[in-house]
Design a protein around this nucleic acid. Structure first.
Lengths: 154, 154
DNA sequence: ATAGATTATGGGTGATTGTGGGTAAACTAT
DNA sequence: ATAGTTTACCCACAATCACCCATAATCTAT
């Protein structure tokens, strides 16, 4: 019954309520390893979406950041921008997390959210934004996409 | 419920009142380890911002300074400039700390402060100054920034 | 098919947080 | 010493959040 811990696949659509809360799919909650303490870290993703990490996965990133020298200005900027929008959230008794106005705005989220398992993390999208971004990526690099498929698909 | 002690992430914006007080985000207060005794050490940061260390973290810096030979003039200058602007502050019952006129001036702070968790320390910025500094850093070293992202982001 | 459990969604309430200001003690400078 | 200024500590209030309960829809197992 137990799949790989901290591994997420599949797509789910939920509504965002007036308080800014979204449900985390029950399957994702169950595959979150117990040492995460029901806690995720949410932050800005690289496209206009929200990234959701299991707490322990995020701590690996933090540990790497600690090793960067503070003398270099570019290092400081990198640390700042990586950590700046991140916050840890535990889901409530109903399995929801609260999204800050800042993140909702960044990901252009209104009432509906599409939650997608990305293997080691989770993405939260506005449906329309996702469609647009994916289309752009495919148009730009379709041959590279096919190469990847050739290497990886069984 | 307990996250990593003395680890800070996220961005918060607060106002600086007429007395020079700023709020320390509740989350940061909670993740400050008890042996710090609700005390931070504030000093000049490397960019035009204020750096805020947990007391115990700062004590490690002081210990390292003690090991530097006082014979070397450059050592003495380094020690002097590292310690010169540092002072320890405990936050009041409302969770605020007082910033000296000297530090406020150095960081060009007026009415609004942006407080950013930088993993093992905290930065206090004027919003406009931060935008300018970050932009400069990115323009100068964008390729190095991308390399860092490639190495560290999961 | 039915009963029981789980899930998704909405709302209520007390506690916490951010912010302003008041007052008395402590400190400075004449 | 005294007047003026600064600091430490206290109280107050509005907004927000964490936590609880309720309900309808969906799933599970017999």
């Amino acid at each position: 019954m137990t799949i790989n811990q901290d591994t997420f696949t599949g797509e789910y659509s939920y509504s965002i309520d007036a308080k800014g809360r979204v449900n985390i799919p029950a399957k994702f909650r169950q595959s979150l390893a117990p040492e995460n303490d029901q806690t995720f870290v949410i932050t800005r993703g690289m496209d206009s979406c929200i990234w959701v990490y299991p707490l322990t996965a995020w701590q690996i990133i933090e540990d790497d950041l600690k090793d960067l020298s503070a003398i270099s200005g570019i290092n400081r900027s990198f640390i700042r921008n990586t950590v700046r929008y991140a916050s840890s959230v535990a889901f409530d008794k109903q399995g929801r997390i609260m999204l800050s106005a800042n993140l909702l705005d960044y990901a252009q989220l209104k009432n509906d959210a599409l939650i997608i398992g990305m293997v080691n993390k989770i993405e939260i999208w506005d449906p329309k934004v996702l469609a647009k971004v994916d289309k752009q990526n495919l148009e730009m690099d379709s041959s590279e996409y096919d190469e990847l498929a050739d290497k990886i698909i069984l």
